[in-house]
Each structure stands twice: as structure tokens, then as C-alpha cells.
């Protein structure tokens, strides 16, 4: 399989980034929900949030890479068979997914860095706090992070349902394209 995208198919880089981000988003969502309910004496009480933050920051890097790659190697165009409403829905949905991802990651970052502390990434390096001390920063960012995460995951499910609709009802190549097949 080719690395880069072509007008006919997605390349390996885009495919890996897409499924990697999808898996990470759902993983972080589950980890996040689970870790906030942990008992104080759980052995995961400190490591789970540390893991959540470190993976979240790696996801941010992956999303930046995704944007750059989108620019360097544009994805194949939408299928000719799509009607105007499908085109609009696809553009809007994908745009919101990108926006939502960045917003969830940034709001999460703003919780942990609210008092000027940086975020340790797997003990390898520390991402410094850039914005701290906003009024009620950790509380506002916390609410935004929680609600947007639910929104993002809901939108992702909708995105998956749309792909399944293309596959099983419209019987087009939309879903298979993201698995490496060409039209």
C-alpha cells in the first residue's frame, strides 16, 4: 500500500492516523470516566490520570501531524455518488470532529496546568503550562472537558453509523476506503 493519499484511495499514513486516533479517543474516554471514580487507595489512583494526560498530549501531537499531512497529501475527494446533503453533512461532521478533538485536548491541558504546573509525559519530558491563573480555570476547563468529551464521543458514534450506512445501505466504498481499498 502507498504511504500517501491519491485521488483514488487513502494512503497508509492517513489510515493509521485515522484508526489510531479513533482507538485513542475511545480509550481515553473510558480511562477518563473510570479514573475519576477510583478509590483513594487504588494503585491506579495516581497512575491512571498521569497516563490519561500523557496519552492525551500524544494525541495532540498526532492531530497536529494529521493536519500537516492533510495539507501535504490531501485526502481523496468525496465520492461522486454523494448528494448535496451528504456532502454538507460529511464536511460539517468532519470539521466538528477535528474541532472537538482539539477543544477536548486543550481543555484537559488547561485543567492540569491551571496553577502553573506542567504535565509529565511518561517521565520522558514535561510539557510546560502556557496559560494559568485564569479565574476558576480548573473548574471551567473541567466542565468544558467533560461535556465536550461526551459530545465528541457521541459525534464519533454518529460518524461510525454514517460509515455503516454508506456500506450497508448505499453500498458504496466509503468505509472500505478507510480500510485501504480503492474505489
Amino acid at each position: 500500500m502507498q504511504w500517501h493519499n491519491s485521488p483514488a484511495r487513502y494512503g497508509l499514513v492517513s489510515i493509521l492516523l485515522h484508526w489510531g486516533v479513533a482507538l485513542t479517543v475511545f480509550g481515553l474516554f473510558g480511562l477518563g470516566l473510570w479514573m475519576v471514580g477510583l478509590d483513594y487507595y487504588s494503585s491506579w489512583y495516581r497512575s491512571a490520570p498521569a497516563l490519561h494526560k500523557a496519552i492525551g498530549l500524544c494525541l495532540f501531537a498526532a492531530m497536529l501531524l494529521r493536519l500537516v499531512w492533510r495539507f501535504l497529501s490531501p485526502p481523496p475527494p468525496l465520492l461522486d455518488s454523494y448528494g448535496p446533503l451528504t456532502r454538507l453533512g460529511a464536511r460539517l461532521g468532519h470539521g466538528l470532529l477535528y474541532l472537538g478533538l482539539f477543544a477536548v485536548i486543550i481543555s484537559g491541558y488547561l485543567i492540569s496546568t491551571a496553577d502553573g504546573r506542567g504535565i509529565e509525559v511518561f517521565g520522558l519530558f514535561e510539557v510546560p503550562a502556557l496559560v494559568s491563573g485564569l479565574p476558576n480555570q480548573e473548574d471551567v476547563a473541567g466542565l468544558v472537558h467533560e461535556y465536550l468529551a461526551w459530545g465528541l464521543v457521541s459525534l464519533s458514534v454518529l460518524h461510525a453509523l454514517a460509515a455503516l450506512k454508506h456500506h450497508f445501505i448505499d453500498r458504496d466504498v466509503t468505509l472500505k476506503r478507510m480500510l485501504g481499498c480503492s474505489r
Binding site: 490520570p49 485543567i111 491551571a114 496553577d115 504546573r117 480548573e138 473541567g142
Partner: peptide, 16 residues
């Protein structure tokens, strides 16, 4: 009560 401050933003958020 929202003015609680223990010198750690994440902990303060949890305390609230």
C-alpha cells in the same frame, strides 16, 4: 466554599 485553596489546582477542583 468555592474559595477553597490547597495550593494544587487539580486537588482544589476535586475538593469542590
Amino acid at each position: 466554599t468555592a474559595s477553597v485553596d490547597s495550593n494544587h489546582a487539580e486537588r482544589d477542583k476535586h475538593l469542590r
